[in-house]
Amino acid sequence: MNVIQLKRQSWNLAIILLALVLGIWRISQLPQFGAYEARTFVLGILPIALLSMGQAIIIIGGGINLAIGAEAVLINCLSARYMQDTTFTESVVLAIVFILVGMLIGALIGWIIAVSGIADIVVTLATSFLLVGVAMYVMPQPGGGVNQQFADLVSGKVPNFIPPLIWLILPIILIWIPLYRSKLGISMYAIGSSKEAAFLSGVNVKLTKIKLYAIGGLFAGLSGLVLTGITLSSSPFANISNTATLNSVAGAVLGGVALSGGVGGLVGPALAALILFFIPTILLAYGIDPAYSQIITGALTIFVVLFGGLLRKRTAGKK
């Protein structure tokens, strides 16, 4: 086992440990812990965990998607508008359509980046304006709704915590694991690690980029849809999309994905979302102003990246 692999494992271990400690802390604050509380936990992290996973795929591939929050907000608005007053079957069909829309938007962003040669950050910054605009157009005011049966399919009838857990784990099993093993998965790490070497190794860099943004869009679509299922409404606001984007980057980075690309996985970001969720809720329980949790989340993200960076520097120095 080499240093880098060892370090990656220890990073994951630290994340698991931190999530565990915070979890126990949170549980100890509660008068009791059962299925109801577990459901609250899973529902609390589900949208942001999915978004972090989508962001992670793009960052591993050497990009960054500052529009991912806007993608989720748009799907949230679309689904809350058109899934209101529908039958269950219609809802399911629409859900699939909207997830595909998310993929399509992602693919489009990826295509623009690939064709124009403009930096990811610029393209996604601009598209984030655009998508929030569309979202506001779809839902000028917060509101909308969703078929109750469909909502139960997402969030589970109280206190059933299994459905949201499935929504969290299924994408990892059905999307991430096959992706990791596929040629596309290797290409993803390859273009993130070194575009030139990837090109020389026969990777179609542009096509890979488009596919990764499409998968990122798929996760953003899932996230938006799940949000509708949980909140039964939509929020067409730019600041929500910006916060979601920030959290997705924080989650991916906290979850062990290197911003320089080529390193990381999806389980870390999912766990990181748990950590990002526990911090404010624990503080709230102490009656502390929730604004402090924003300070802590910000500081934690900085600290984590700093720590990771210093670790990397030290091992690189030894080489």
Binding site: Y189, A190, G192, S193, S194, A197, A198, S201
Partner: peptide
């Protein structure tokens, strides 16, 4: 410069 992917 070898065309191998550094992180793989």
């Amino acid at each position: 410069d070898p065309a191998l992917i550094p992180d793989l």
